[in-house]
Design a protein around this nucleic acid. Sequence first.
DNA 1: CGCATCCCCTGCCTGC
DNA 2: TGCAGGCAGGGGATGC
Length: 310
Amino acid sequence: MPELPEVETVCRGLAPVMVGARFVRVEQRRADLRFPFPERFVERLEGRRLVTLTRRAKYLVGEVEGGERLLMHLGMSGRFTVAPDVPAPAVAAGKLGDFHHETGLGATHDHVVFHMARDATRDARGQGATTTTITYNDPRRFGFMVLIAEAEFTMHKMIAGLGVEPLSNAFDAVFLAKAAAGRTSDLKAFLLDQRVIAGLGNIYVSEALFRAGLSPHRLSGSLADRRGRPTLRAERLVIAIRDVLTDAIAAGGSTLRDYAHTDGSLGYFQHAFKVYDREGAPCPRTGCCGTIRRSVQAGRSTYACGGCQR
DNA sequence: CGCATCCCCTGCCTGC
DNA sequence: TGCAGGCAGGGGATGC
C-alpha cells in the first residue's frame, strides 16, 4: 500500500480536481470496505463542496462544506483514478464494459465514485458544468472512508494518536531521541509505530535504515544517550528519513503492484530501492562487500545489508 | 504499557 | 495445467 510518499502523490493529483468542486453525485457500491461506510455517507456528501484536501500520515483529509471532514485511507491496495465523465451514450452502447482504459484495471473493485463539478465551469457551448469522475478502486478492501464532525476531528481515534510528520520541522534528532529513550523494541518496529512517526511504512523504513547505516534489529533506545540526548545515530536517521521521503515524493512514489497516480501513470522510486525486495543482491554501498538479507520482524519482511548496517 | 500474533481480503507468483 | 502455499505498501483487536 501506499506509504507517505504515495499518499502525498495521490493528494497532489486529487486536489486540483476536487478542491473547490462539489460532490454532484456519489456512488457507494457496497456497504463496507475495511469498516462499514458511515451512516448516510452519500447524502452527507452530495451537494457539498470540498474546501480543502490534505494529507496527514497515510490519510487523506478532506474538509467538506457544512462542517464535516472526509477521512480516507488507501489500505494496501487502494487507488484513486481521475477521469472526465464518460458521456452516457458511450456507456449505453457498451463501448466501455468492465474495463478502465485509463488504468487497465477491471471495474470489479470500483467501490466508490465521486462525480465532481465546479459551479462556475461551463463548456464551450455553455451547456452545464463539466464534471470529473473520481473512482476509488481497492481489491483487498483494507482502505476506508469515514466522515467526522469538524469539532471532533482532532480527538478522533484515528487521528488523535498520530505522531509527528517526518517532513515537518518538529521531526528532529532531539524529538527522535526523546521518543526512543528507554525503549526496548527494535529499531524497525519503532519506526513503523505511527504513534511516534506518522507515515513511514515497510518500504521506507528499510530504505531509511540503509541510508543511515543502521541495523533494523538494533535497540531503538540506542538513539538516545543516558540523558535522553540524541546520539549521532539519531542525527543520521533523521536525515536519512527526510531524504528518502523527499526523494520518493519527487519520483512520484513507488509502484509495486497496485499503486498508481490519479492519472494512471506510475511512480518510479522503486527503481531507486537500495535494499527493499533485493534479497541476495550485493550491497550497493561503495566499498561494502555485503549482501542484502531478508528477515522477518513483526511478521513483515525487512531488508538490510549485514555488512554496513550496524 | 509493550510486544507478538492473528485477522481482514484479493491477486499474483512459486513450486510441486 | 492445476492447485496449494506464501507473500504483498495497511492497521486494528486480542492476549500475554
